[in-house]
Each structure stands twice: as structure tokens, then as C-alpha cells.
């Protein structure tokens, strides 16, 4: 069992990383409205992504091979972890491809979107990642109740993000004439947000499964599924870290 001060330090590390992310997002927004420098935005997004990949997704755990016994739960979790990361690498190519499409078709322009709403949904997704990290850490510390509460908050915030994008943002955009068939800006916007929303939806299903089974006490000993759901959720967040500036911040807005 982990000592109390170690538990505390893991939780406070999560808070610290979240503060960094929040500050960087604010900085990103400020850069966008004052300089609109694409390289600078890219650097900020990269820093945010590295923070999430390292501190929330624990990419370094790929090195922990789980010992000698190939039949132990630890070893198998190590294999599963590798499999999940390979899947995420593969999935990242879809999003990278969408970025290529965006850059090729829109260049230094962007669809005209509601900035307040964009910042709001981005904040919701980032905060949900914080609660996910907290839930996962508490699970590993053996605090089932804390894990369930934090995962539930993550789930609700994720749902909020999905509703915000699909039912609010899409409607507002369509109302202003930005539809899938209105031109390349609309096509790129709906394809990128749609593909991301699909991943948010699968992440929510994953979280829902983990929540239900967590209530039954399934993960008190073997909690790799919680880690997997958390890593996947953070991955969806990392994608949005790049998609948000690409859709909302870079270049000049095109009026539909």
C-alpha cells in the first residue's frame, strides 16, 4: 500500500498539472486574439499535449514490464497497456489526417464560430481530464468511493462536452449558415468535430462500463480497466488540445 504522503503528492501533482493546463489554455486564447501566431499556438498546444501524455496518461509506464512471470496480472496489464498505446498511435493517424485536410483546404482561414462556446467546451473537457486523473489515482490508492465520484463527474462533464458540441455548437453554426454542404469550411468543421465527438461517445461508453462495474467492486484488486478508460479519455482530450486551436484560433474567420 502506498503511504499517505505519497497519495497526497500524487493528488497534488494532478492539481498542479491542471493549473498549468488552465494557464496555458488562457495563454493560448490570449495569443490567438493578440498576435495570432501559428507557431506560437502550435508550441502551446504541444506543451499541453506533453503535459497530459506524461502526467495524466503516464506514458512512462510502458517501461514497467510487469516482472518475469508472464501469467501474472501485472505482466498482462503491461501487455494490455502496450496494446492500448499502439491503438492510440494508430488512431492518432486519423486525426493527423484530418489536420492535413484542414490545413490543405482552409490554410490560414477558419470557420466563423462562437468563441465563448468554444472556450467553454474546451474548459469542460480539460477539467474532466483533471477529475479523471483524480479518479484513477484514488482507485489505485484503494479509495473506491472517491474513484466513483470523480469518474461520475468526468462522465457528466464529458456528456456536457458532447451536448455542447453536437447539440449547441452544431445548431448555432448551422443557424449562421455553416452546414456540412455549405463549403469546405463547413465540411472540415463538421468532419473534425464529428470524428472527435464519436471518440468522446466511445469514451463515455467506456467510462459508463467502468462506473457500473466499479460500483460492484470489480476493480478493487485488478484495476487495469480503470487505467485504460482514463488513458483513452485523456487521449480524446489530447486530440481536442490540437483541434481547438485548429478550428477556433488559427488565422482569420471566414464568414459563411
Amino acid at each position: 500500500m502506498i503511504h499517505t504522503h505519497e497519495k497526497q503528492s500524487m493528488l497534488s501533482q494532478g492539481i498542479l498539472i491542471f493549473i498549468y493546463l488552465a494557464v496555458l489554455t488562457g495563454l493560448e486564447f490570449f495569443v490567438a486574439i493578440s498576435f495570432n501566431s501559428v507557431p506560437l499556438l502550435l508550441v502551446v498546444a504541444l506543451i499541453k499535449a506533453v503535459l497530459v501524455v506524461y502526467y495524466y496518461m503516464h506514458v512512462y509506464q510502458l517501461n514497467a514490464d510487469g516482472g518475469e512471470d508472464e501469467n501474472s496480472y501485472e505482466y498482462k496489464s503491461g501487455t494490455n497497456r502496450l496494446g492500448l498505446w499502439l491503438f492510440l498511435i494508430s488512431d492518432a493517424f486519423v486525426f493527423a489526417g484530418l489536420m492535413v485536410v484542414r490545413v490543405n483546404l482552409l490554410g490560414l482561414t477558419r470557420p466563423h464560430l462562437n468563441q465563448t462556446l468554444g472556450l467553454a467546451v474546451t474548459a469542460v473537457l480539460l477539467i474532466s481530464s483533471f477529475f479523471m486523473n483524480r479518479g484513477e489515482t484514488l482507485m489505485k490508492n484503494g479509495d473506491r468511493k472517491g474513484f466513483l465520484n470523480n469518474t461520475l463527474i468526468t462522465f457528466l462533464m464529458g456528456l456536457g462536452f458532447l451536448i455542447g458540441v453536437v447539440f449547441v455548437e452544431w445548431r448555432l453554426a448551422a443557424h449562421e449558415g455553416l452546414t456540412p454542404s455549405s463549403g469546405t469550411a463547413g465540411a472540415v468543421f463538421y468532419m473534425m468535430t464529428g470524428m472527435h465527438a464519436f471518440h468522446v461517445l466511445t469514451g463515455l461508453i467506456f467510462l459508463g462500463v467502468v462506473l457500473v462495474n466499479g460500483r460492484r467492486g470489480l476493480y478493487d484488486e485488478k484495476h487495469y480497466p480503470v487505467e485504460a478508460a482514463a488513458v483513452y479519455w485523456h487521449f480524446v482530450d489530447v486530440v481536442w488540445i490540437f483541434f481547438y486551436p485548429a478550428l477556433y484560433l488559427i488565422g482569420t474567420a471566414l464568414l459563411a
Partner: peptide
């Protein structure tokens, strides 16, 4: 593992172009 996603994406984009009139 990696590159296959791109043919999937390119075909999906044409699919959506046909279905929803997205002008990629």
C-alpha cells in the same frame, strides 16, 4: 498499424461527400 487509417479516412471523406454534400 498506422498508414491504413489514411485510406480509411480518405474513403470516409468521399462517402460523406456523397451522403451529405461535404465538399472535401
Amino acid at each position: 498499424l498506422t498508414a491504413t487509417q489514411l485510406i480509411g479516412l480518405s474513403f470516409q471523406l468521399v462517402m460523406f461527400q456523397r451522403l451529405l454534400g461535404m465538399g472535401f
